[in-house]
């Protein structure tokens, strides 16, 4: 058996971390797009749209992400296609992120005072115009810090995709452990890499919150 230096271990983990980063980006951006669509349905007039999104959010926030991954993996397989792990992982993470993002953004949209909606309606604006010109520009400002904060959850969520066989940082950690028999060192390094990915995001979320909230801080 060949020996592994710490550098060998770290290099292998860092190579695998690329897939963690890529999957995080795909999930976050895809989740953002689906989440935005859901947001429009959630805040629209009528009953069916909001009710659907409510149920959707309840289902995805009330069940483990791991189960969602399993269901995506085996569920897509029911259609007779051979499902690669990356596809199931992306689909599940996008749908999961969308549920959380749409809920975060709904809070931001609803924090815009009612009078703003009424004022813009009295100017003859339709729903889309109201959103585009009045509500979203204000809501986006409030939405940035919690959205960046949620990206940390996405990065950490990708760790679970190792269980359905997607080879990213966590899976690489398991594989390298099985080769080196040094779980303490390997998982310590894996945790360190995750920390290096997540901590800047957490910190910038905090800093953004302080910066963007200046206008609203009156106590």
């Amino acid at each position: 058996m060949s020996d592994f230096t710490t550098w060998d271990i770290l290099r292998n983990l860092l190579l695998a971390a690329r897939w963690t980063v890529l999957l995080s980006l795909v999930s976050f951006i895809g989740g953002g797009i689906v989440g935005a669509l859901l947001l429009f349905a959630r805040t629209a007039k009528g009953k069916a749209g909001p009710a659907f999104v409510k149920t959707y959010v309840e289902l995805f926030q009330g069940t483990p992400l791991l189960m969602q991954l399993f269901l995506a993996f085996f569920g897509l397989g029911l259609f007779g296609i051979d499902v690669p792990a990356w596809l199931a992982a992306s689909v599940a993470l996008i749908l999961w992120s969308a549920a959380f993002l749409t809920e975060i953004w709904r809070g931001c949209v609803e924090s815009i005072a009612r009078g703003q909606w009424e004022a813009s309606a009295s100017l003859g604006m339709g729903y889309v115009q109201q959103m585009r010109h009045v509500v979203l520009p204000q809501a986006l400002r409030i939405a940035v810090p919690p959205t960046v904060g949620f990206s940390v959850q996405v990065v950490k969520g990708t760790a679970l995709t190792s269980i359905i066989g997607f080879v990213e940082l966590s899976k690489a950690g398991t594989v390298v452990t099985n080769a080196t028999f040094e779980p303490f060192k390997v998982y310590g390094l894996v945790a360190l890499i995750y920390f290096c990915l997540c901590w800047p995001l957490s910190k910038s979320s905090q800093i953004l919150e302080r910066k963007l909230n200046v206008a609203h801080r009156n106590h």
Binding site: V152, L160, E182, F184, F195
Partner: peptide
């Protein structure tokens, strides 16, 4: 707090179950 909040639960679990026996 920062360490736990910025690493996945799965890795914390693996570290405790597989890593700590080394100590």
């Amino acid at each position: 707090v920062e360490l736990i909040r910025n690493t996945p639960f799965l890795i914390q679990l693996f570290f405790i179950f597989f890593g700590l026996p080394a100590l």
